[in-house]
Design a protein around this nucleic acid. Sequence first.
RNA 1: GGUGACGUGGCCGAGGGGUUAGGCAGAGGCCUGCAAAGCCUCGUACGGCGGUUCGAAUCCGCCCGUCACCUCCA
Length: 512
Amino acid sequence: MADRTPRLYNTLTRTTEAVEPREEGHLRFYSCGPTVYNYAHIGNFRSFLTADLILRTARAIGWETTYVSNITDVGHLTQDDLVDPSGEDRMAQALEREGERFANIYDLARYYSDALLRDWHALNLRDPDVRPRATEHVTDQLEAVIKLVDSGHAYVTDKGVYFSVETAPDYGKLSGNREAEQLQATERDIVEDEGKRDPRDFALWKLDENHLMKWHSPWGWGYPGWHIECSVMGMRYLGDQFDLHAGGEDLIFPHHECEVAQNEALAGHEVIPYWVHTRFLQVEGEKMSKSKGNFYTVRDLIAPDPDDEHVPDAIRQQGGVDPLALRYALLSGQYRKPFNFTLKTLRDSARAVKRYRDVQARLDEALQSTSETAAATGLAESLRESYEEALDAMCDDLNTPGSLAAALKGVKAIEQADSLSAADARTATEWLHDINNLLGIVEPQHAATERTGGSDGDDDFAEQVESLIRERADARSAGDYDRADAIRDELDEMGVEVKDNPDGTTWERKGL
RNA sequence: GGUGACGUGGCCGAGGGGUUAGGCAGAGGCCUGCAAAGCCUCGUACGGCGGUUCGAAUCCGCCCGUCACCUCCA
């Protein structure tokens, strides 16, 4: 596995390229995190998942990694600001909406960033090495702005400090929006600061004495522009030359375009050669939006409010889906292709995750068995091939559907083995562990991933079910099949699936 | 208007000049008191039109369609 190199589509060059870290065998990358003014939705997580997969793939081929992902806890402008420049930012609006829950804007940010971390862990996303917060790096941001002013890349007006795009000849190289100037000039001039020299110029610092979050600057009280935080935090933790930057496709412009301009103005050279962007997902064939009722946060799906009618009944009834099923569903589309998230995909994914769990249970049993059983023929070889193929697929621009398919071949090989020797079980357990390291779909890696929904741990419920099953067994042995079937129907109503095996009856809660 | 991506069987979704994706659904079978679950078997599809080629779903061109971004957004 030593000579594998991951390939990724680079937005900057518009081609799929082999990723070659500056320092051989050590990938340093940054992934844009969310603004914490609300619960993160499944689209946010599709993007965070891409970063997680880059990390896992790099580790799987033996690379070191340094991974930074920020939390934006400073409010930035909403579209309303374009109409009403004195308007409030998103976080301020959130506070207004939920004012009774939070004492101030910092409480709100803290609450939603805690929620973000819980969801992050629930979906088996690995933690970054550093998770910087914008509010904790305002001084760094100010220093960068001062440096840009001093070097002539920025200028001050009575409303703020702006980056002068004219001084960045490559501006537009990432997004291709080189002509945005002409196209949007009129609108920009109206909504922005008259002191701006070029409509493309963007804010590095905004002066506002009344802003809910404000800091002191050489130009007066105010707050930083949106783009500067990522430039500053990226270079602070990864240096002025690192390898890769990831984010959602909407960030290509303006956010990353502006970041590139700032980076290069600050460093005097290219800072990041690879840019990776995750496409938006759709839900049930439509753009995810609150008005369409197809807007899902992670917790809507894994721990729904029972009374929230916009969450499908099937999900609410079982108290939320397995978080790993949600992760699996998000993996079933490649990050760069349009992906249609549907309830059906989620249902299929839950079954797939269950297959892994069942295989794992079988392996655990085989490991503990002391009886001599014949080795399964060719199992080790099938599993080796399965893993190699799964890893190859990940190296091929994070081809997750291909990787899942390859992994499933290994699952099938285990399922189909007539018997498993202890050695087989050890080999297969190791394989399962490797697959889990690569894709994160087998075992929860944090306590938070344990199923919170359902009543699996409910002893009373289990007792009730066991009792009904005993009753049914009695009816069956007495030949009273009408009675037995009635009990089975009753269990079915309770969401319990009955399975009659040769050596007894088992049951489990029904999935989606 | 500018920019980028994508169109594969009933559905999701890989692959990518001649040779099996996989899953779900569906059909048949085994098992079962009957079911369920499980297991076995079964699919020959690539938006349209041209071109290159011995051969194209795969390469090239054009067209059609879908999606996204162009200072709210992952």
